[in-house]
Write a protein that binds this DNA or RNA. Structure first.
Lengths: 270, 270
DNA sequence: GTGAACCTTCCCACGATGGGAAGGTCAAGC
DNA sequence: GCTTGACCTTCCCATCGTGGGAAGGTTCAC
């Protein structure tokens, strides 16, 4: 019989851990002196403890180790569960390392964030326009329709570029709405599901948006993610027509304060 | 100006996090109403927040992000530091995955633990013996010497197998001591430094110790570790000569209760 | 008997985040 | 102007495994 300190020296497991495992009901001393509460361990417990320590070292939570309790099949199941967890972790870790490499190449100047995009409901206008065309009149058209029905949600407008051919762009303008809205010939009502997106921010004018979205796609590929769907351009802060009563918080008069977010949808797990 | 909720919706960063970053001095609202303490954020802060979020997503602690404070060189240094951390994590993760695979192959029956071995001081006897020879008389010799000088430390004895040739073993017996001891012609005093060891446990007789240490070496190699030095056999619980007054806690009469630990030294980082 | 070395329990800390309670504020509709 | 509901505030607690440390009891050897 060993006191906790001797047993700790024997097994390399700290006395703190042994007390913790005792308290958690995971590994208990063979005998506890009822008057002094001293814990006493036996050498025959060493294999038990080792089994526990080796599972802890695999990163399995104590709770789950305790639930095993000498059942060979459940041990295998637990190990396989842990393996899939570790494989997911390694994927995430590889993403991070790839992101880091990209940032280091660019002297830390690239900020790409992967995050969730909440589901949304929108008034939508699709159009074919020449590259570089002013989209303001089209936005005004949708805004006017939405505000006529008092359905403007407090979120920024979006432009999706579905395709580009021979100097023409197939675009879709989205204005967020917070209630039902009649569709018209030109304006539809669409909903978008929640999604994971990789996002990059552009401060200033719109000259390089296309290049930014190409960079974003390349970034996502290099960090091992799959991209799906066309890029979204989210107008977080922009200059707009005075005629419309837009939420002032999204507006700016200073061209250098224009902020646009570029999003591409990525597969959440991969 | 946005309230915390609106800014949260805009950036995808939860209000909880924004408050936390505020409290940590990492990212603060442009204005706080002094009477209501409401936080108000501006769209011009979005790039700042994004920079922070992208660094957080790389797993850099908030504290360290805060220490950067708009210094391009320190950012690069921080990213490189984080990269080396991540590379170390990936190494550890790959070790774990390899360990898991091995356990799954063997239906979870192998318990190998990597842990630290504290430094030690020992009375040491080296000898050439035939394979399978009874080591008890040699142990008794060293024990007797140690106990004559009242230097017995409360730890189990060890046998190191330095080499095996033509059915002969070059072994070294170690008895732990806790004070200085005169050496003799046969018995030396040695110290061993702290080391990382991979360890496996054998319950029962000594028939398979050699195979266990070979398994241990193979395990260490397969999990990407480098092995150095000969195997140690630590007699955690054994049957011994009655003549000697050995610490009773290491003794047993029941052969099935014999417990031996096999150690090989591994390189800590790799 | 006294001191050193051990043991006990209890509380706190880490790190980033979320949950939830109790209470104050804002804005819209009446 | 009042009510109501959505929003905001601060504060406390939880995670998870481990260690640090305080305050106090036990053991053992001199």
């Amino acid at each position: 019989m060993f006191t906790i300190g001797a047993f700790s020296a024997l097994t390399g497991v700290s006395a703190k851990r042994l007390r913790h495992y005792d308290g958690a009901g995971l590994f208990q001393p063979v005998w506890v002196d009822p008057t002094t509460r001293y814990r006493y361990y036996s050498a025959t417990q060493i294999p038990d403890l080792r089994r526990i320590v080796s599972l802890v070292n695999l990163g399995i939570p104590l709770q789950r180790i305790q639930n095993l309790r000498s059942d060979g099949r459940s041990l295998t199941r637990e190990l396989e569960r842990r393996r899939s967890e570790l494989e997911r972790e390694r994927l995430a870790l590889d993403h991070r390392l790839a992101e880091l490499e990209i940032r280091l190449e660019r002297s830390g100047e690239l900020d790409v964030v992967v995050r969730g995009r909440p589901p949304g409901r929108w008034a939508s206008l699709r159009a074919e326009v020449p590259a570089g065309a002013d989209l303001a009149p089209l936005f005004v058209e949708v805004e006017a329709h939405v505000q006529r029905h008092d359905a403007r949600a407090s979120a920024p407008p979006v432009c999706i570029v579905h395709g580009a051919k021979r100097g023409n762009r197939s675009i879709e303008l989205l204005i967020p709405i917070d209630r039902a809205l009649p569709a018209t010939e030109r304006i539809a009502v669409v909903t978008t599901p929640a999604a994971a997106v990789a996002s990059s921010l552009v401060v200033g004018t719109y000259d390089h948006l296309t290049r930014v979205s190409a960079n974003l796609r390349a970034w996502a590929r290099r960090t091992g993610r799959r991209v799906s769907g066309p890029p979204w351009y989210v107008y977080l802060r922009f200059g707009a027509d005075e005629e419309l009563q837009l939420p002032a918080q999204y507006l700016t008069d200073d061209e250098t304060e224009v902020v646009t977010e570029v999003l591409v949808e990525v597969q959440p797990a991969g």
